[in-house]
Structure formats: C-alpha cells, structure tokens
Amino acid sequence: MQKAAKLPERGVEMSDEKQLLRAYGDRRGDGMIQLSFTLEVAPGARAREAAKRFAELHGIHEPLVASMEEVAPGFSLFVVYGHSQHAVDLATIEVPELRTEALSREVVYARIQEKLGRKLVVVGACTGFDAHTVGIDAILNYKGFSGDKGLESYKCFEAYNLGAQVENEQLLARALAVNADAILISQIITQRNSHKENAAAFIELLNQQGLRDRFVCLLGGPRIDHKLALELGFDAGFGTGTKPGDVASYLVERLA
C-alpha cells in the first residue's frame, strides 16, 4: 500500500487544481475494491495466478483471489479484492446536469396559464421495436410513478401517449397533427446500442424536415442521462427514478 500511505487523511487530495478520488473500503485512501469476472480456464493454481495478474493489469495492487469456482466446464469465476491504484480527478469532470427546481403543481399551472394561456401539449411514445411501456406510462398516464401523478393528471397539460413499438414517422405525424409543444421518447432496450440509434434517427428525421426547432425533445429510459441525451441531439435526458413532476417542471422552465 505504498501509494495509499502517501495520501492525506481524507483520501481526497485537495489542492487548487486537483481533487483526487480513491475507492474507499475500510479506511480512507485504501483504494479497496472488489470485482468478479470469468476466465476461460479451469480452476487450479495457474488459473488463480492468471486471475491475480488479470487484476493487476487492471491496476489492482495486492489482489486477493477470494473465490475461484468452475461455472462451466473450463470456465472459472473469480471474486477478487484488492487496492486500486487509480485515482480520479474530480476537478477535471464536467457533466451537464439538469438543474430544474421542482415546482409545485400550482406553480406549474399558474405559469402555463400566465405565459401560454392554453394547455401545453405533449406527445410521447416508446419507439422502434421496443415494446416497453411502463416508463413512458409512468411519466404521462394519470397513475404516474411512485405516488407522483402523471402529466395527464395536470389541468394544464394535454398529454398523448402513443404506447410502444411506434415508428418515428408515426410519432412525428401525430406530434404535428396535435400541434405538440414537446415530444417525449422512451428507450428501454439498450442491447447493441439500439436506444442510441433509434433516438438519433428521430432527431435526424426532424432535421431532414427542418422541424428540429419546432419541438422540445426529451429522451428517457434506464440507461439515459442528460449528457447522453444532449449528445444525441435532444434537449434533455431523464433516467431511472424520474418522476412526472420533474418533467413538468423542466417543461415549464423551458416553455412557460
């Protein structure tokens, strides 16, 4: 643990420029982490040594192979503990974050009334071949999510939920037909990055038709964050645990 010993008490090296973060296990600065992985080798002394070296190559100091078990003929699962030598400089990290103040239902209503003088129209769907509706339902439908009622329950929103397996063209056509202010897209399946491709294709469609500025576009799903949504050309991204109120507040900040 030579490296860790040099660290100050907090395990976070603070200076004007640097804020180094190390993993915390039992004591500040010990860099302790656990990891598990499978290698295509039967258990044995060589396999154990291979696991150790594998861990070392990942920057793990003094790896302890806590468990080695054959999970399929010729495959071993290892659980390894050790001291990570790496530290991350927090000061170098910048992530776009959605900083919307959570507004009460009354404030949302009052602001939309005052600024727009009409209902705010939103259209949402889970697009492509993705058949998961629970996420978009949670945001749009009356029932809502975790005790927070969906946009449909607000007097000042007109919410259209097209459900799942909706084609991008279909979604856009509907958004145009109801004169939507915002389009909400949900993407749950992420295997082979299908969520990114689907979402990007929608923005591409808007761009082609010169309609990108006409709508506020939101993207949501368990593997979506604000940063990714921005990269894909959306205005905002919402991940796990999003409540309808978060979305209502954002839309008000943006549009009213």
């Binding site: 999970v71 399929a72 003929p73 058949a131 399946i189």
Partner: peptide, 23 residues
C-alpha cells in the same frame, strides 16, 4: 451456455427469441 447451464444444475433451458421477432 445451454451446456453450461446444464452443468450448473438447470433442468430446463430456454432460448428467448430476438427482440423484434414477434412482429
């Protein structure tokens, strides 16, 4: 992986069909 599952003690192995196949 089906064989590996049998090794691990599975009695039944299901292969689920690809995401968009139902349609």
């Amino acid at each position: 992986q089906a064989k590996a599952a049998a090794y691990g003690g599975a009695d039944i192995v299901a292969v689920i069909r690809a995401t968009a196949q139902s349609l």
